[in-house]
Design a protein around this nucleic acid. Structure first.
Length: 263
DNA sequence: AACCGGGGCAACCGCGCTGGC
DNA sequence: TGCCAGCGCGGTTGCCCCGGT
């Protein structure tokens, strides 16, 4: 047996709200409030609408504190960050954006931000494909990190638990045991650890974990690394990559020197 | 000018949760 | 304690608008 409908669909008006209906609803709520019951509200207010429809219209459009208009870049950033942590929990995300409704945020994500993110991913992959990789010689740390980013974005198996832990790793991947320890700091940055770099024994290609060019500190302090879910947060990483990429930092070059020394 | 397709957004649907009885 | 009405939420639909052909 299905759930009983909340109202008789044949007796209520559906579709867009008229300005008159908006006015009636606003006036009623101004004078009486919801009375704790949306279902009976339309009858009392004299509206031929489903109670749920009234509630939605009020919460998503008529409420006085609703912010209409375009989303700001700051709001976009908040949405990106929260979506990457929480997923499609629109009401929670909207609660962090004063004046925005869950419906607004959801629509904004589906029509704009999702596409923008996909475009960022695509263009980033295209950039990686154009980047010449070193071959036949010891790679620079910069190249290693680029390679790591490529491995990550191209869907290489998850090795971010540390390559030193070979669980789930393809048999051809071995640990390159000649790199930094994880506790070193160069100009305030944590550096890569020996569980973060490996070599593919079949192709001699160097691999790196899913840090994707971020330092440990950056991953932990910016929410890029989601400890709760135990996985890299791709969306967050891509958003921050252009400016935060460890591969682009001066510190990277210093690590590079030490890396060569150890090697 | 007419048609078409995509984008944007408001509204609807249905399910899970909650609190009152 | 179980039932059920109502609420809240996320997914989906449908409509309008606008730009391109």
């Amino acid at each position: 047996m299905g759930r009983a409908p909340c109202c008789d669909k044949s007796k209520v008006k559906r579709g867009p709200w008229s300005p008159q209906e908006d006015e009636i609803l606003k006036n009623y709520l101004h004078n009486h409030g919801t009375g704790g019951n949306w279902i009976s509200l339309p009858l009392k207010a004299g509206l031929k609408r489903c109670g749920k429809s009234c509630r939605l219209r009020w919460l998503n459009y008529l409420r006085p504190d609703i912010k209409h208009g375009s989303f700001t870049p700051e709001e976009d950033t908040i949405i990106y960050n929260l979506y990457s942590k929480l997923g499609s929990r629109w009401s929670v995300i909207a609660s962090k954006l004063p004046g925005r409704t869950d419906n607004d945020v959801k629509n904004h994500w589906n029509t704009k931000l999702k596409k923008k993110l996909q475009a960022t991913k695509d263009s980033y992959l295209a950039t990686l494909n154009q980047t010449p990789q070193s071959s036949g010689s010891i790679p620079s740390t910069y190249n290693l990190i680029q390679k790591a980013e490529a491995n990550y974005h191209l869907g290489y198996p998850n090795i971010d638990q540390g390559i030193g832990y070979l669980q789930g790793m393809p048999s051809n991947v071995g640990v390159l045991n000649c790199t930094q320890t994880g506790n070193n700091n160069v100009q305030g940055y944590s550096t890569v650890s020996d569980s973060s770099i490996a070599v593919d024994n079949n192709t001699s290609e160097f691999l790196m974990d899913y840090g994707a060019g971020f330092t440990y500190d950056q991953m932990m302090n910016t929410g890029i690394w989601n400890n709760n879910q135990g996985q890299m947060n791709l969306e967050e990483a891509l958003i921050n990559l252009p400016t935060n990429s460890y591969a682009n930092s001066t510190a990277c070059q210093n690590v590079n020197d030490q890396f060569y020394g150890n090697y």
